[in-house]
């Protein structure tokens, strides 16, 4: 009986959490639409997020392109389709791998950081101090971070896509006879506007998820250092899971809007 109750309590708390996240999102849009706008704070977060994440996502993107080429080459050769390697690699990267890998790394790096930072501010009463000073902490801490992550992630994806294609080229010259001009012409030939826009566009959603989940977990962190750790860890878990779920939905929407020829 007691284990059944525990199970029910867990389910109830799970739905409570979803409800709380929903009202947190609604509060974001309410604050986002009206002044004051903390543009200096947004700029500061954009610089911090961008600079700190560039090396790690760049490396991951380059290696993904390289490995994808090396792994795919033997299979494509089997079907006599090795000439299509640049097409396959570039489309995979631009449509799916670039956006999702960048978003997942961004979630690991940024969402946990936001969760820990705001969680620690909550625990040490810095958020209360801001509120008592008649400054809206939600606007200053949450809205600015969510705007920054939503803008920064699509920019990072363009950079990652480029490096991943470069990695793909390096992989190609290791396994087959090609040149940069030939490779890039093949990429330009196959990649269409309808591949680039959804690939980059969905990262506005992923960036929003990373910012809002990290902020939500940190803003409502429990008291104590344990609360800060929990906020940091659950930020990554929840935002990564949401990115994968939302990606699945957006892929379906993209295919409906731009059906494959």
């Amino acid at each position: 009986m007691s284990s059944k109750n525990t199970y029910l309590t867990r389910i109830a708390s799970y739905f409570n959490e979803i409800g709380a996240l929903g009202s947190f999102v609604a509060r974001f849009f309410k604050r986002f639409l009206f002044p004051p706008y903390e543009l200096r704070e947004v700029k500061k977060h954009l610089e911090e997020l961008g600079v700190k994440t560039l090396p790690i996502v760049g490396t991951a993107g380059f290696i993904t392109g390289l490995v994808l080429t090396l792994q795919s080459y033997p299979i494509m050769t089997k079907f006599g389709a090795e000439g299509f390697l640049p097409y396959m690699v570039s489309l995979s990267i631009i449509r799916e791998l670039g956006p999702v890998i960048t978003a997942l790394i961004f979630a690991g790096r940024v969402s946990s950081g936001i969760g820990a930072e705001l969680g620690s501010m909550r625990v040490t009463e810095q958020i209360d101090a801001m509120e008592v000073s008649a400054v809206d902490p939600f606007n200053f801490l949450v809205v600015t971070r969510v705007i920054a992550t939503t803008i920064m992630l699509p920019i990072l994806v363009v950079y990652v896509d480029f490096l991943a294609i470069l990695g793909g080229f390096l992989g190609s010259i290791l396994v087959m006879d090609t040149t940069w001009t030939l490779y890039i012409n093949q990429v330009i030939d196959v990649v269409k506007f309808s591949d680039i826009i959804p690939g980059i566009g969905k990262n506005f959603f992923f960036g929003f998820i990373v910012g809002i989940v990290g902020s939500f977990k940190g803003y409502y962190a429990d008291k104590g250092t344990e609360g800060v750790g929990k906020a940091s860890t659950t930020s990554v878990v929840v935002s990564s899971l949401l990115i994968i779920i939302v990606d699945m939905i957006l892929v379906k929407v993209t295919l409906l809007l731009w059906p494959p020829a």
Partner: peptide
């Protein structure tokens, strides 16, 4: 309000901590 642990904003210098409320309000 002076909080128990002072609740200074960690990411700001002493000067910025003091200027924060004045510059906003």
């Amino acid at each position: 309000f002076l909080f128990q642990g002072a609740a200074l904003y960690d990411s700001m210098s002493v000067k910025e901590n003091l200027a924060f409320t004045l510059s906003k309000n």
